[in-house]
Amino acid sequence: MHMKSAPHLLTEDRAEYERILDEALRTAHDRPDLAGIGQRLNTEQLRTMALNATALIAAAAAAEYDHFVTVRADARRPVGVIDSVLGPPDEVGGPGAGAGVVVTVLAPVLAGTAAVIFLLVGYVLKALDPPPAFADSLLAAGWFFGAVTAASILAAAIGLLIAARRNSATQVPAQEPGGDLPDEVARAREAWRHALLERGILPFLREALADPEADPHPAAPPRHFGRLPKVGYSGPEFSSPSEGEARPRPAFTSPDFTSPDFGGPEHRPDPEPQPD
């Protein structure tokens, strides 16, 4: 299983993190505080949880790790050519260092530029008929600066050779993982390993074993609801008349119209008189 990417640890130190974690799990039976391994969470589950929490665990030893990385980078940094010729970086700002930079770097450039200008102008004037009297002086000056340029380049080459030999004897080569380290780097590395184990990995394993809700698997994605959840109040109820409660309807009847023949006895017409 490969460890997930951690923003704090460098790539070359992630394998060391895994080795420290595996060693802690391998010797867990010797630690009474880790005696619960295998009851609810086994070794592989704890390892998975610790790898997923690499950034959190590594942050517990951030100060020691930053010091270790700084010391290791200083030990691996080769001594530069200018440092070898002019001295350490804290001496570059001195007056002697400034003169050395001018002589070593700028002198060949300036002398070469002057030589080209004087020779070019001198030969152009020499081609005139009659040539000016100072044409020979310009050519002489051009050849003089040409000689200065050659001498400056030779001096710079000698300085580079001396610096290269000095570097090969004094610089600290980059160390392979597991190889011998300089004493200061080895002490910083051991301090980081100790802090990572005691303040990061072991507390994480103890808390994972003591937490009954610890989940060795990645957290499930949040649920998505298809509709809005019901809030604690509801709007007023509106219903159509047909859905509402039955209400008594007013009793209206049409007027009682009847023909005279079908009226009551009191409304019957008088009988017509019979003829004699």
Rank of each mutant, 00 (worst) to 15 (best):
R31D: 15
T54C: 14
D90L: 02
G159E: 08
A251V: 13
L196N: 01
L21R: 02
A61T: 11
E176L: 05
D276A: 10
F252R: 15
P88E: 03
A186S: 15
A73V: 06
T149M: 09
E207M: 11
Y123I: 13
E12L: 07
G235L: 10
I57L: 08
A114M: 10
E237Q: 03
N52A: 12
A107M: 15
P130M: 12
G226C: 01
P229C: 10
P248E: 11
A155S: 07
T48C: 02
P260M: 08
T149F: 09
P78D: 04
L202E: 06
L21C: 05
Y233G: 00
A107T: 13
F238I: 02
D83E: 15
P255M: 04
G100W: 13
H2Q: 08
E23R: 15
Q45R: 11
L196T: 03
D83I: 08
A35M: 05
V124K: 04
A62G: 05
A157I: 03
A174T: 08
R76D: 15
L138S: 00
L34D: 02
F257G: 13
M1P: 08
L86M: 02
A151P: 06
A50K: 04
V148N: 00
D22E: 07
G93F: 01
D83M: 10
M49I: 10
A188P: 09
A60N: 10
A155Y: 01
H267L: 10
L202H: 06
V81Y: 03
G93Y: 02
A107Q: 10
E18A: 14
R249M: 07
D180K: 09
D13G: 08
M3Y: 11
A28M: 02
L25H: 14
